[in-house]
């Protein structure tokens, strides 16, 4: 799982050396930002259902055609699955906030994403709309501190970029 610590260790191991001062400094840099990331992860996971619901509602409001017969949001099963997908992305974002790298998103969200959506004939636009809403809805200091919100926004942007 890619994080600052594992990246540093992998590099040191490839060179066969003990962790050097600069290795330790880069870990320290990550630990200094960890408090903000932990805060964002805590707030997001504590409110995951609501954030996902709002984001899902926003994307269906923007793309109402998805409710038409035969479209991706046309049955109860489809609706719960759409909702679940949005929630998955937000959960992986909270994991990535904890790890301090994009490892969980890369390995469990983005790898194979394009192929799956193509095979299932799903549009990625609505996902982008949902995540954009989740991104713009965040507000400091109402939801979390400014630094925490920056970390959160960066990861939502990362997912949005992967979808477009």
């Amino acid at each position: 799982m890619k994080s600052v610590v594992t990246t540093v260790i992998a590099a040191a191991d490839a060179a066969g050396r003990f962790p050097s001062t600069s290795d330790l400094e880069s870990v320290q840099g990550s630990l200094q930002r960890a408090a903000a990331r932990m805060e964002a992860a805590e707030k997001l996971s504590g409110n995951l259902d609501n954030v996902a619901k709002e984001a899902y509602d926003a994307c269906i409001a923007k793309y109402p055609y998805l409710n038409n017969a035969g479209e991706a949001n046309s049955s109860e099963t489809f609706k719960t699955k759409c909702m679940r997908d949005v929630k998955h992305y937000l959960r992986l974002i909270s994991y990535s906030l904890v790890v301090g790298g994009t490892g969980p998103l890369d390995e469990w969200g983005i790898a194979g994403q394009r192929e799956v959506y193509r095979a299932l004939n799903l549009p990625t636009g609505p996902y982008v709309a949902a995540l954009s809403f989740a991104r713009n809805r965040g507000c400091a200091p109402r939801d979390m501190s400014a630094q925490a919100l920056t970390e959160y926004n960066a990861l939502v942007d990362y997912v949005i970029n992967s979808l477009s």
Partner: peptide, 20 residues
Amino acid sequence: MLDAFSRAVVSADASTAPIG
């Protein structure tokens, strides 16, 4: 390879739950 953080994430993902 895991660290303390990714270890917590991997065990939370096993039950698709946010990290409590």
